[in-house]
C-alpha cells in the first residue's frame, strides 16, 4: 500500500535557529496523525512546510497524486501546488478569520472552492453549500449571513465546511479547537471525528491539547525544540511515555 504522504527529513531554519529538523514520517489513507508539543517546538513550522505554505530548507514531501503517484510537493511548480491546496488538500486554521473571507456570506465562503475549480451553476453551488452547512450543524437559513455574525464555534465549523466541500483527501489542522470553550470544543471534536471516519479522510492535526489527539489521532508524534522525540500509537505514547519530555507533558495535564 502506498502512503498518501511520505515526509523525508524536512528541515527548516529561521536564520541560525531551528524551526524543525530532520522530521520524517508516513501517513496512510484514512489515518490521522497528531503532532503535539509545547509552543515553540516547531509543530506549526512543520505543518506549514508540509502544506506548502513555507519553503523547507531541505527534505521532501511526497504526496500521492491522483495522476502520477508520489510527487514531491516542495519542488513542484507553484500553480500545481496551489491547485492541490484547493482540491486535494484542506487547511483548517487556528483562527477562523485566517481561513474565511469575513466580508463574504457563509454560502459564498463554502462555494468559493467550487467556483475555483470551475463550478458555474448558481443553483448547484447553493445546494451543495446548504448540504455542507447542515453537515457541520449550521442552520440552512444562515447561508446568507456573513461569518462576522457567527459565534467562534460556528466560524470554525464554517471553515471546516468550506475546506471539505471539494472532497479533499488530506486535511491539515492547526489547533482546530484553540480558543473555544470546552463544550463547544467537545461538539467540534465529535463533528470532526464523524467527518474523518465517514469520509475516510487523512489528517494531520497540530495541537498542544492532549485530549484532542487522544480522541482524534491514530498515531502521535511528540516534538521538542524542533526535533521529534517520540512517535507511536496514540494510546501507547500517552499511556506509556518513554521519553522524559513526553512523560513531563503527559503528567502536566490537569486532572479535573
Amino acid at each position: 500500500m502506498t502512503p498518501l504522504l511520505d515526509v523525508k527529513s524536512i528541515t527548516k531554519f529561521y536564520g541560525n535557529r531551528i524551526g524543525c529538523a530532520d522530521v520524517s514520517f508516513d501517513l496512510y489513507p484514512g489515518e490521522v496523525m497528531g503532532i503535539v508539543g509545547e509552543s515553540g517546538s516547531g509543530k506549526t513550522t512543520l505543518l506549514n512546510c508540509l502544506a506548502g505554505q513555507l519553503q523547507p530548507d531541505s527534505g521532501e514531501v511526497l504526496f500521492d497524486m491522483r495522476v502520477g503517484g508520489l510527487t514531491d510537493t516542495v519542488t513542484m511548480s507553484e500553480p500545481e501546488r496551489r491547485m492541490l491546496s484547493r482540491t486535494d488538500w484542506a487547511f483548517v486554521h487556528q483562527h477562523a478569520r485566517d481561513g474565511l473571507r469575513m466580508g463574504v456570506s457563509a454560502g459564498g465562503n463554502v462555494g468559493e472552492r467550487l467556483m475555483a475549480v470551475g463550478a458555474r451553476h448558481y443553483g448547484e453551488i447553493r445546494t451543495k453549500a446548504i448540504d455542507w452547512l447542515e453537515r457541520v450543524e449550521i442552520a440552512a437559513d444562515r447561508i446568507d449571513d456573513k461569518p462576522k455574525a457567527f459565534s467562534g464555534g460556528m466560524q470554525q465549523r464554517l471553515q471546516i465546511a468550506r475546506n471539505l466541500v471539494t472532497g479533499p483527501r488530506l486535511v491539515f489542522m492547526d489547533e482546530p479547537t484553540g480558543g473555544l470553550d470546552v463544550s463547544v470544543q467537545a461538539r467540534l471534536l465529535d463533528l470532526l471525528r464523524g467527518l474523518v471516519r465517514e469520509l475516510g479522510l487523512s489528517a494531520i492535526i497540530v495541537t498542544h491539547d492532549l485530549a484532542v489527539v487522544r480522541l482524534l489521532a491514530d498515531r502521535l508524534m511528540v516534538m521538542k525544540d524542533g526535533h521529534v522525540v517520540e512517535t507511536g500509537l496514540t494510546d501507547q505514547v500517552l499511556d506509556d511515555p518513554q521519553h522524559a519530555y513526553t512523560q513531563l507533558l503527559v503528567s502536566s495535564v490537569l486532572q479535573v
Partner: peptide, 16 residues
C-alpha cells in the same frame, strides 16, 4: 495563475 474563482464569488454574493 488564472485563479479566477474569486470573481465568481462576487457574482454569487450579488445573486444571494
Amino acid at each position: 495563475l488564472e485563479e479566477y474563482g474569486l470573481m465568481h464569488v462576487k457574482l454569487y454574493e450579488d445573486i444571494s
